[in-house]
Design a protein around this nucleic acid. Structure first.
Length: 730
DNA sequence: CATAGCCGCCTTTTT
DNA sequence: GGCGGCTATG
């Protein structure tokens, strides 16, 4: 290891980097240089004679994996180390050990819309009504079962109550549909891999040999299935290095179990623990507020954020009339920062829900500020992209009925619903896939002559794509990579399927779509050049895992707009967080539960957002916000008070500015209609019971009081609606 | 069989 | 408010 590298590290960082054998837990606060530590650690391992081939680093997103690969390459430590997400790794493992895992190697990876379609079908097949059993809810329930590694048969065997029995039926049926279509959903990738490693000692041993060193980043957000995979992978050598921060756990709703990181030392009793508590990113003022906020979480190990930078600018909290004014103000402030020389690529705006990007985009457009919404799925969700990918999917996996039905009449080629139904039901009767049905149209009596011809022409076209291309072909159960790469094939399919033509005839929209397809083909070209073993199969299986932050281009001179969740792992000079309002952050859906777990996760979410900022942090809320077409009065988030940000003043000044001193006349006399509360006041609420006032925000009639109730819950309430009675102190 | 228009459903966060 | 699915019409 070069001294020049090591000299850049603190003593704790050095300990983590130079630790070689055995389990290591790196508890790394925000901005502690964790990513750098991981990369240097990979370099140090290689330096100490370990083959890059034997190193596997797991990141949370594909974007993070890309970045890590690049930075490792810059250190000269890239060659051969496997760096990817859990899901990507599982795809490769399942493909390689398909037989042992009891899957077919050319499986389709089903994304959420495919899943939904399958689920609807499953509910229908069970002769249930999807309004009583909403597909989304059922998928959530099944997803969490899979994350717990409970498969359909096991679940079915163990259920007693009415609802669970039905869920079990649906689960079984859903899995059957997936397997008929040779599809795996995201959770299957993890579950099947965990089962494979658990049940096949040989495979587990082989992979343990291959990955002698396992590094897992964002360990606080691993779920039980991922945890099991990790445990099994390192069971022979225990060379596991987990890095993470319990305070940044924000994916509980997706099955992430923060106990994985909390129990690391129990799981690996000889673990060495390194704490990285110094923060090299943010000004002390920002850390102080973030620290204040996170300290409100009860279920938490005490931890300090140690600043290394000067105090800097105070965190700015502003309130606005509505979301339009808020967005305009953000745009204006961005403009000012930019005029002072700030780089747009170093500015970000975070919000709680994707729907909030719209208003911000409009403001940025009006102010002519370049921006990018970091939400890569958008691209792969586009119709034209999905259409072309569906063709490629069918070429890889003919049993992928969803993809096949998508393209059978796209572009329109005169194959209507009735024709499709006839083929579909014929295939069902003969117990063959729809694709096989296409080959036997002559046997389907119900079809007209014209329909038969059209179906045959379609099937021939697919065959032609398959045959004429230079691979990929199945040799046994292995797909041989296309010699010429995937891009030319994609181009050919696009041209000859009629997709290109139909877009060209559509005018402006079609033009746009054509450009998108070009972009897709460019990205396939890039894939062809950099993939380890490019094949259509690999491409199609990996592409389904790409999403969200993955498409984020850090180098372009544009302001980044993203959700707080997507902000994880990033940093910016200036950060705006909008909509810091009760009901939005914390989100209303997370304040309904019986305990504070979800509220605490919302608090961590804001904590993550705040700690992305290096020098400037701007929090804001709107007094009115239009939600689902309805203009609603909002309440500032309790988190604003908890963070100790100075803002009550801005709230009331803003208020009096626009409403002309309704509540206080110029002499400061009080003509208010709602009572004052002082901190510490004991109060009673009709449904929440006794509690103590933690904060009071004077906004006249719209004053808000934050109360910690004896039940342990903290709520912020509008005084005028809350019906609080003051109790005498005890 | 294709298309346009309407109705009703969902709506947090995402690999 | 937005999308998917259904229906009525050409």
């Amino acid at each position: 290891m070069h001294d020049t590298f090591l000299r850049q590290l603190t003593p704790s960082q050095k300990k983590a980097v130079l630790h070689v054998e055995g389990p290591l837990l790196v508890l790394a606060g925000p901005g502690s240089g964790k990513t750098r530590v991981i990369i240097y650690r990979i370099a140090a391992l290689i330096d100490s004679g370990i083959q890059p081939y034997n190193i596997c680093a797991i990141t949370f997103t594909n974007r993070a994996a890309d970045e890590m690969r690049q930075r490792a390459a810059a250190l000269g430590a890239s060659g051969g180390a496997h760096i990817s997400t859990f899901h990507s790794l599982c795809v490769r493992i399942l493909r390689r050990y398909a037989a042992q895992a009891k899957v077919q190697s050319n499986f389709s990876v089903y994304d959420d819309s495919d899943q939904k379609r399958c689920m609807k079908q499953a509910i229908k097949d069970c002769e249930l009504d999807s309004s009583n059993f909403p597909p989304g809810r059922m998928l959530d329930a099944i997803s969490s079962l899979k994350n717990q590694l409970i498969d359909a048969d096991t679940f079915k065997a163990g259920v007693a109550d009415f609802f669970s029995k039905i869920l079990a039926e649906i689960y079984v049926r859903y899995q059957k549909l997936l397997s008929e279509r040779n599809g795996l959903d995201f959770d299957d990738l993890l579950m099947k891999t965990a089962f494979l490693l658990r049940d096949s000692g040989d495979v587990c041993g082989e992979l343990g040999e291959r990955f002698k060193f396992l590094l897992i980043d964002e360990y606080q957000d691993t779920n039980h299935a991922q945890y099991t995979i990790a445990r099994l992978l390192v069971s022979r050598h225990n060379n596991i290095c987990a890095t993470g921060d319990p305070d940044q756990s924000i994916y509980r709703w997706r099955g992430a179990d923060v106990r994985n990181i909390l129990a690391f030392e129990n799981d690996w009793p000889d673990a060495k623990v390194v704490r990285l508590e110094e923060n090299f990113r943010s000004a002390a003022a920002i850390l102080e507020k973030a620290d204040n906020l996170i300290a409100y979480n009860q279920k938490r190990k005490e931890k300090k954020l140690i600043p290394t930078k000067p105090y800097g600018k105070d965190v700015l909290v502003e309130s606005f009339e509505d979301e339009v004014a808020e967005a305009r103000a953000v745009a204006q402030q961005v403009k000012e920062l930019s005029d002072k020389g700030a780089s747009l690529s170093d500015i970000a705006v975070f919000y709680r829900v994707n729907a909030m990007s719209r208003g911000l985009e409009e403001a940025f457009i009006r102010h002519k500020i370049p921006y990018q919404v970091v939400r890569g799925i958008e691209f792969y969700r586009r119709k034209e992209i999905r259409d072309l990918l569906a063709y490629l999917k069918v070429l890889v996996n003919p049993d992928d009925e969803i993809a096949l039905l998508r393209i059978i009449n796209t572009p329109a080629r005169g194959i209507g619903k009735i024709t499709i139904d006839r083929v579909h039901s014929y295939a069902g009767r003969c117990n063959i896939s729809v694709f096989e049905g296409l080959k036997k149209v002559e046997h389907i009596e119900a079809l007209s002559k014209g329909a038969k011809a059209k179906l045959s022409a379609f099937a021939d076209m697919l065959d032609e794509f398959k045959k004429d291309i230079d691979g990929p072909r199945f040799h046994g159960d292995r797909l041989v990579p296309a010699k010429a790469g995937i891009a030319p094939l994609a181009q050919r399919v696009f041209d000859e399927s009629g997709l290109a033509e139909s877009l060209r005839s559509e005018g402006a929209d079609g033009q746009n779509a054509l450009e998108n397809v070009n972009e897709l083909i460019n990205s396939i070209t890039a894939y062809d050049q950099q993939a380890e073993e490019p094949s259509l199969l690999d491409y199609i299986q990996q592409i389904s895992l790409f999403s969200d932050v993955d498409g984020y281009d850090t180098s372009s001179e544009r302001v980044a707009l993203m959700t707080l969740h997507a902000a994880k792992g990033l940093e910016f000079e200036n950060v705006f967080i909008v909509g810091v309002e009760h009901g939005l952050l914390p989100h209303e859906r997370s304040t309904a539960g019986e305990n504070d777990d979800e509220l605490e996760e919302e608090r961590r979410l804001l904590f993550v957002g705040m700690t992305r900022a290096k020098t400037g942090l701007y929090l804001s809320y709107a007094r009115y916000r239009t939600i689902r077409g309805q203009m609603l009065r909002t309440i500032p988030s309790q988190f604003l008070f908890e963070s100790g940000c100075d803002f009550a003043e801005s709230a009331s000044s803003c208020h009096s500015r626009e409403s002309g001193n309704l509540y206080h006349d110029d002499n400061g006399n009080d003509n208010r209609s709602v009572p004052y509360f002082t901190v510490g006041q004991l109060v009673r609420h009709d449904s929440f019971g006794l509690g103590r006032v933690k904060e009071f925000i004077d906004m006249g009639e719209d004053s808000v009081v934050i109360i910690k109730f004896n039940t342990g819950r903290t709520k912020s309430l509008m005084v005028k609606y809350a019906g609080l009675s003051k109790m005498d102190g005890l």
